[in-house]
């Protein structure tokens, strides 16, 4: 799966897609592959506020739980309710239908310090190399 050029990426494998003053946040294809079949997603309530780097939810597979960190300081506007009944969407469409939360950005400049698609692909290639070393 390709990594969209208009997204930015974090080292914790979250992506963010900015649309004006708001943004969608999800987990990357790399993250869903390492988790395996996702069975449950726990998301915050609209109105919740997070600082950059803090955990806003969890994504669970059968035998692993992964926290999801907000790459930016933000306020949650909307959560993706459809994931409650169809968590598998995270495996099938991580960069699209399986966005996790929609947020209002507090410090839009934070996004600029994140990786672009090329940098992220280099980053995960490096990760893979480490794992096989």
């Amino acid at each position: 799966m390709s990594y969209p050029a208009d997204f930015r990426y974090s080292k914790d494998h979250e992506w963010i897609k900015v649309e004006g003053g708001t943004a969608k946040i999800g987990i990357t294809d790399y993250a869903q592959k390492s988790l395996g079949d996702v069975v449950f997603v726990e998301l915050p309530k609209p109105g919740a506020k997070f600082t950059a780097g803090s955990a806003f939810g969890t994504v669970e597979s059968v035998k692993a739980v992964s926290e999801v960190y907000s790459p930016v300081t933000c306020e949650v506007l909307e959560v993706n309710e459809s994931l409650a009944s169809a968590p598998e969407t995270i495996n099938t469409d991580p960069h699209g239908a399986a966005w996790l939360i929609k947020v209002r950005l507090q410090t839009p400049a934070e996004v600029q310090s994140m990786m672009d698609a090329a940098a992220y692909e280099a980053y995960i290639a490096e990760k893979d190399k480490e794992a096989h070393a």
Binding site: V39, F40, E60, S61, V62, K63, A64, V65
Partner: peptide, 12 residues
């Protein structure tokens, strides 16, 4: 639903 349990989630 074993992810609730200590052997997976450990301190959480």
């Amino acid at each position: 639903l074993a992810t609730r349990e200590q052997h997976i989630r450990r301190e959480k």
